[in-house]
C-alpha cells in the first residue's frame, strides 16, 4: 500500500472521529426553547464557525503524526512533491465531494421549502459536510488503488 493510500485511510478515519466527537460535544450544548428563536440560529452559527478551525488544526496534527509514524514504521519518507497524477486524483476527488455537498445543500433548502424547522436544514448541512469530506478521501483512495 502506497503512502497516499495510507494517508487517505487515515484521513477518512480521522474525519469520522473529529466530526463525530465534535457533533456529540456540541449537541450537549443545544439551547432549549423555540426552534425559531435567535439562540438556535446563534448556536448553529457557532457550531459551524468553530468547526472550521477545529477540523483544520486537528487534520494538521493527525497528518503530521501520521507522517512521523509512517516514516518510522516503513522507513520510507513521504513524497516531497505532488505530480500530475496526484493533481488529477485530487481534482476528481474534489469534484465528487462538491457534487455530494451540492446535493446536501439542495436537500437543506428543500427542508425550508416544506416548512420544516431550520434545525433540520443545519443538520442536513452538517451531515452533507461530513459525507462530502469522506467522499473526497474515499475517492482519493479509490483512484490511487484502482487507477485513474
Amino acid at each position: 500500500m502506497s503512502y497516499q493510500e495510507r494517508r487517505a485511510i487515515v484521513s477518512v478515519l480521522s474525519t469520522a472521529v473529529i466530526w463525530g466527537l465534535y457533533f456529540s460535544y456540541m449537541l450537549q450544548r443545544y439551547p432549549e426553547g423555540n426552534a425559531y428563536s435567535p439562540e438556535v440560529f446563534k448556536y448553529w452559527g457557532t457550531v459551524f464557525a468553530i468547526l472550521i478551525p477545529v477540523t483544520i488544526v486537528a487534520r494538521i496534527l493527525i497528518i503530521v503524526l501520521f507522517s512521523i509514524l509512517n516514516t518510522i514504521a516503513t522507513r520510507v519518507e513521504e513524497p516531497e512533491f505532488t505530480d500530475e497524477r496526484d493533481r488529477l486524483i485530487s481534482l476528481k476527488a474534489t469534484r465528487n465531494s462538491t457534487l455530494v455537498f451540492i446535493v446536501g445543500f439542495a436537500l437543506g433548502m428543500t427542508t425550508l421549502a416544506f416548512d420544516i424547522p431550520p434545525v433540520a436544514m443545519f443538520i442536513v448541512f452538517f451531515i452533507s459536510g461530513v459525507v462530502s469530506e469522506m467522499v473526497s478521501e474515499l475517492s482519493e483512495l479509490y483512484f490511487y488503488r484502482r487507477g485513474v
Partner: peptide, 22 residues
C-alpha cells in the same frame, strides 16, 4: 521525468495514462 515512483508504478500497471508531456 519528474514524477513520484508511484506514478511510474501506475503507468506500468496501466492504471494511469500519462499526459502527453510525461
Amino acid at each position: 521525468v519528474g514524477v513520484t515512483r508511484q506514478t511510474i508504478v501506475a503507468i506500468e500497471k496501466e492504471q494511469y495514462t500519462p499526459s502527453l508531456e510525461l
